[in-house]
Design a protein around this nucleic acid. Sequence first.
DNA 1: GAGTGGTCTAGACCACACG
DNA 2: GTGTGGTCTAGACCACTCT
Lengths: 256, 256
Amino acid sequence: MGTTQLESVQEPKYWHLKTVLSEALDSDFAVGEILPNERDLAARFGVARATLRQALEQLELEGRLQRRRGVGTTVAPPRVGVAVSTDQREWADGVGSEAWQPLDSTMAKAPAPVAAMLGTDPADPVHVVRRIRNTQGQAVAAELLYVPASSVPDLSAIEAPSGPVRARSVLRKLHRLGLQGQDRSVELGSARADDAKELDRLPGAPVLVVTTRYFTADGTAAVSVATYRADTCRLTFGDSGALEISHDEQSERQAS
Amino acid sequence: MGTTQLESVQEPKYWHLKTVLSEALDSDFAVGEILPNERDLAARFGVARATLRQALEQLELEGRLQRRRGVGTTVAPPRVGVAVSTDQREWADGVGSEAWQPLDSTMAKAPAPVAAMLGTDPADPVHVVRRIRNTQGQAVAAELLYVPASSVPDLSAIEAPSGPVRARSVLRKLHRLGLQGQDRSVELGSARADDAKELDRLPGAPVLVVTTRYFTADGTAAVSVATYRADTCRLTFGDSGALEISHDEQSERQAS
DNA sequence: GAGTGGTCTAGACCACACG
DNA sequence: GTGTGGTCTAGACCACTCT
């Protein structure tokens, strides 16, 4: 094209675009404001729509934008800090303070890695409790709690065999166990189809997978696999009586 | 095309492809093995290269693949568990057990959010110590440690003004402070150009950003912003004397 | 039905690694 | 130089939401 481009940088267009957009977002847009549509934006910047989309994808990954099919692209609010409890006392609290909402409980085979952590036979079915975590009216996480039958013996068959009622009764039994410790890991993943639906995202959306192993004196009592929306969440770990201090400041620190 | 597709699923091609590839990886490929190139793969599956790439990108995000320009696509080893220390004692240890390698130390203005956490004026320069973390011969994280001058008073100007020597002297001074607690958060980000270089990734690569605030009785003594490679790392948090148990099992649990 | 973002195509050229 | 993944284009059609 034009020869006016002395800036023959070795920087990809989408990367440069992302920077420009990011700055525009800071200065010219308010949270919740809706951006021009992708075709217009692409035209305005003189790039193909695919290139523009590559920039938008990055910004969405960083929690700066929110895109919804059929609606548009909006400026995202700062990520919400979500406390990943280190607190022993309410590890499986069905009505816990942190708004975990039990959906149902079924018996199913645990995935191989989970079975390995539980120390159970991969072929043995375990209780699988499904929960959703809400924060500020938004679903931020979906969890599968794997509980070996041995952790919750004599769970009466009289009670509802599934549904929230059943889930709560499993959690209640679990809650009575003395928790000795836990073991946690965080990694990047992509949302399975069912998780995506609960989280109001498309399948494959980036999520932070928090795997927690709860153990008692007898060994591993349960394993939780919680998937948090990576676009909207910042996981916080309170280590030492650290109060939930308000860093309302955006945690934006990426982009070159 | 053909009408043989009774499977007129509403599933995107790239998603289905990803599933197929994922299964193929499990059964037909060994770790480190090199895949056919993208053009061949795309042809083999009868899709455009862009579509094939969308599937590969997802698999790379999930830590199943590793792609390197000019080289090829290989099967990635399971993610390494990287301990994010909750240990007070060696929080700023220059020669710590966890292989943090100090690179240099400079004076610079901290980003606004960091300055807010430090409680310093955003215009005031602070010490910025740059460190790299190696695990199993691989760079897994790059860190910027922001230390207000007030935390390390009387740092002699006689010592090297920059470089690893300087970095170590800042860390040494810091290490002598009594640490009272820390406060940590984890979120998804994308690698800045300089981080990407240290981590042997392209700019924009997904990273887990671990922000740690170290505080003493006097307030916040330092803030660390560490970016971990999201593709190869699983962050582990030992909560309760929990030994670094070997879950050699892959932590693959995504994909529908 | 109109407008949005999501998927897909079939090309092209570029930057990089390696022999 | 050759082959790889990375970027980019200019289209097309689809799925969804809103009115």
